[in-house]
Amino acid sequence: MTRGALMLLCASLLVGACERERREFRRDPVVASDEDKITMSSISPGGGQPAAQSSARAKEFENNAYHVSQGKKYYTWFNCNGCHSNGGGGSGPPLMDDTWIYGGSMENIVRTIKEGRPNGMPSFRDRIPDDQIWELAAYVRSMGRAIPQDVAPGRNDDMHPRPAENRQPYVTPIPGGSTPPSGLAPQ
């Protein structure tokens, strides 16, 4: 075997590895602001789907292990766990199940974090940088494993009160939720 062939093999491995974890290190803050048209409904008057348009950003974040693991870190740093625990919920709803009161897409979750929701979700707009919100949303999507298994985190640094994110079976988020928002039954 020649040294040249070995080097070629190493180089190809390197290129392959690069392919898997490509990400932008620093985004242009102007371009990075919201440009998505998002919807919380699956119906729209006049027939057809609701007008929605999403950038490729969601895939970029939720298919990237680095972003998801950063999101896991911020999840504790910004006290998300105080209300949503390790995904099972508490004063806030669970995040590891398949039920999404305000939509389970990346774009929906980003909006939820940024704008807050009327039944107790605080608004984090101007409190958390945009990219970190996307990273948080990617981690939130990993809690019930709506993202690829090889991207989902595998362990906690603290007590393990639940199966690891990458051990969960894949779930398809059900948008719209099933809980009357205020706990008040229709009157």
Binding site: G88, G89, G90, P161
Partner: peptide
């Protein structure tokens, strides 16, 4: 009883400050 009234996920024992376990 938050596990029922809040529809919490029983797989996470730390939910509701550890009561769900």
């Amino acid at each position: 009883g938050a596990i029922v009234s809040g529809d919490l996920d029983p797989r996470d024992g730390s939910a509701a400050l550890g009561f769900v376990n």
